[in-house]
């Protein structure tokens, strides 16, 4: 956790903050890793259907150990369950849901997000890295609303919200909202607008750890 420790929202609090903004009836794809936490915080009374790109609509919670099924997994290849009303389908149908604009919201992690909503989250571009993209480029182009769930800075304190991404892009101008341990930020044509700051975070501090211009809605 490094420099971010004890300041701003915890990972679970960010997940809960995102979940609070997901409307009843939404079809949602959660990226591998941190975004998976969002499923734990959907407010009671809301019905949200989770999609996993390996072919399941209606992803349920993790199974008890004795109920683990190697052929019932999520995109992160972790065991899941299927809720009553779930359905299975093949990969081309699954990505028709993604690429055809049928999924409402996707929550993804990020290496960097730019002021114009460019996302870099699949490769650090290091020469020794094995390139792997999975479904990230399909999701950012096809899903109606892309939400980024990330720590505000890297472990060494570098801003992850930047003027323009230095890592290879996943997609250009694709991110709508950024939820970090410090703030909720909306990506608009006119720039990055801070919708909310975590308790104990002020605007000057937020500016100091953000690599792109940010604005308050009031101004």
């Amino acid at each position: 956790m490094g420099i971010n420790e004890n300041k701003g929202w915890s990972r679970d609090q960010i997940a809960a903050r995102i979940a609070a903004d997901i409307p009843d009836g939404a079809y949602v794809n959660l990226g591998i890793g941190l975004p998976e936490l969002v499923a734990n915080y959907i407010p009671q009374g809301r019905e949200v259907i989770f999609h996993t790109e390996n072919g399941l609509l209606g992803v349920g919670p993790s199974p008890a150990k004795e109920e683990v099924d190697d052929e019932l997994i999520n995109a992160g290849k972790k065991p899941v369950t299927a809720i009553p009303g779930a359905c299975f389908f093949h990969h081309a149908d699954s990505f028709t849901m993604v690429r055809g604009g049928h999924i409402d919201i996707c929550v993804l992690g990020a290496f960097q997000v730019s002021r114009e909503g460019d996302l870099a989250n699949w490769s650090t571009g290091e020469p020794d890295a094995i390139p792997a993209v999975g479904g990230a480029m399909d999701l950012v182009q096809g899903v109606k609303t892309i939400i980024v769930f990330t720590q505000h800075t890297t472990k060494s304190g570098e801003p992850k919200i930047v003027e323009s991404c230095t890592y290879p892009l996943t997609g250009k101008g694709v991110v709508s909202h950024i939820y970090t341990d410090y703030a909720v930020i909306d990506v608009k044509k006119e720039g990055l607008f801070v919708r909310e700051m975590a308790p104990g975070i002020d605007f000057d501090f937020l500016k100091s750890c953000t690599g792109a211009e940010i604005k308050l809605y009031e101004s």
């Binding site: 093949h90 690429r99 993209v133 997609g171």
Partner: peptide, 29 residues
């Protein structure tokens, strides 16, 4: 990209030689 892979395979099976997609636009791929 995973969706492009699935679609390329489906296209191959359906006799479609090529198609256009926004996936990977403006990226190294």
């Amino acid at each position: 990209p995973q969706g492009t892979l699935a679609e390329r395979i489906r296209a191959g099976g359906a006799g479609v030689p090529a198609f256009y997609t926004p996936t990977s636009v403006n990226t190294p791929l």
